[in-house]
Design a protein around this nucleic acid. Structure first.
Lengths: 225, 225
DNA sequence: GCCGTGCGAGAATAGCATTCTCGCTCTTTG
DNA sequence: CAAAGAGCGAGAATGCTATTCTCGCACGGC
């Protein structure tokens, strides 16, 4: 920070290009190292999560596993919440990709939507087996303290669903008066949250809600006109 | 516990009635005191919550406010989570009562359902002003660690909605093939969770989902045809 | 009046996130 | 090459909470 309050405020941005390039060159290597370290933390955390099936790990565990240090961790993350957020975003982004790929296989817009809903449902339920992203169980915590970041994290999925929904609308497959983006948001929320509270199919009670049911519900509602 | 391993196992239940009554008399007073203490803890916690608008209070705060002791607290509750659970259950039960009362005022079954949905939505959103039960913000946490207890806590509301839904079904106002109880569960979940992530109406984005929208969505779905 | 149970006061323990201190090791730079 | 400094590992120190434990007191039934 050698240069502060030296030039006029408006000149703050007119650094000569060569200088910017020089700085970048000097910076690049550092950035690469940093990215690599962040990646190691992320991988370690992800491994621990899928291993223990919960997000109740300690920062120390992540540090140990990634063979780095606490100091380093806090130098790269603002805190545990940022790590979670990163994992969360990542998981949602990958899920969005996966779902998008699954819907690619033609069918009417509505059918593609159905595929998306059902896959999202499966992806969001609590570890039916093991390796599932499990990104759903810390979502609530984040929702409380960082609703804004969560919105950002949801963006890829929301975009995908909005696209599918819009396609359906264009094909005239939506009930008139339905706003695609709104419907997409509501559907996503419903699917994700319901999946979470849908316990593993071991309970006897009436609960075990299925992907089909949820699709039926979102698509047609319950009212009979 | 003066009587143990004295009679045959099968005789464990044939205590003379007078003895049971005597024990109960001796017990009654203790129970009353305990109930009163529990009540004080609950009241204190509730007060703190509505005061600070969050459930991030310490047990110590509750203890101080209720003019009791930590020892006493842990003698009456298994831990902080039990306290939260108790408050949660209570809030949900009261909300169920309130909603039931609101729907009492005639109308077709479907209209009553609508009233219920919209009121539930309002009750669940994050403190638009202040005094709202706020029972929604620790629900997620509990969902993770005590899904079973949460189910129990939800029971009153679920029962209410199931009733309303069944009435609608009997009146032929539901789409054929809809199972009332299932639909009730799905609707409740959708309303409660959506309300939670529906930020206060200060954001510019497309989010602010309204009670009407949510009703439309649950009742009619998005699919045309 | 005597005993057990409940309880207040508050110290002790423990788990975890976050910060801080030391020295070491490369990379940069003159 | 040597001095300067940035990044980092190791791990101690802090701070906040929940939870447990220890003492000694008081009250209701005998």
């Amino acid at each position: 920070m050698p240069q502060k309050t030296n030039a006029s405020p408006s000149a703050a941005n007119d650094e000569p290009a060569w200088k910017q390039r020089a700085v970048e060159r000097s910076t690049k290597t550092a950035r690469l190292r940093a990215e690599q370290r962040v990646e190691r933390f992320l991988d370690a955390a992800q491994a621990i999560i899928t291993e223990k099936g919960t997000t109740d790990f300690t920062v120390q565990e992540v540090v140990d596993r990634s063979r780095q240090s606490l100091r380093s961790f806090y130098q790269h993350f603002d805190g545990k919440h940022e790590l979670l957020l990163a994992l969360f975003e990542d998981a949602l982004r990958r899920s969005a990709d996966q779902i998008r790929a699954a819907t690619e296989a033609h069918g009417t817009p509505l059918e593609r939507l159905k595929v998306a809903v059902q896959l999202l449902f499966e992806l969001c339920r609590p570890d039916p087996a093991a390796q599932r992203p499990l990104f759903t169980d810390f979502a609530p915590q984040l929702l409380l303290r960082h609703p804004n970041e969560v919105r950002v994290a949801h963006a890829p999925l929301l975009t995908l669903f909005a696209e599918l929904m819009t396609d359906a609308a264009d094909a005239g497959e939506l009930r008139s008066g339905v706003k695609p983006r709104r419907a997409a948001a509501l559907t996503m929320q419903t699917v994700m949250f319901t999946a979470q509270s849908a316990a593993a199919p071991d309970d006897e009670s009436a609960h075990p809600i299925t992907a089909d049911e949820i699709w039926e519900f979102c698509a047609r509602g319950f009212s009979g006109n």
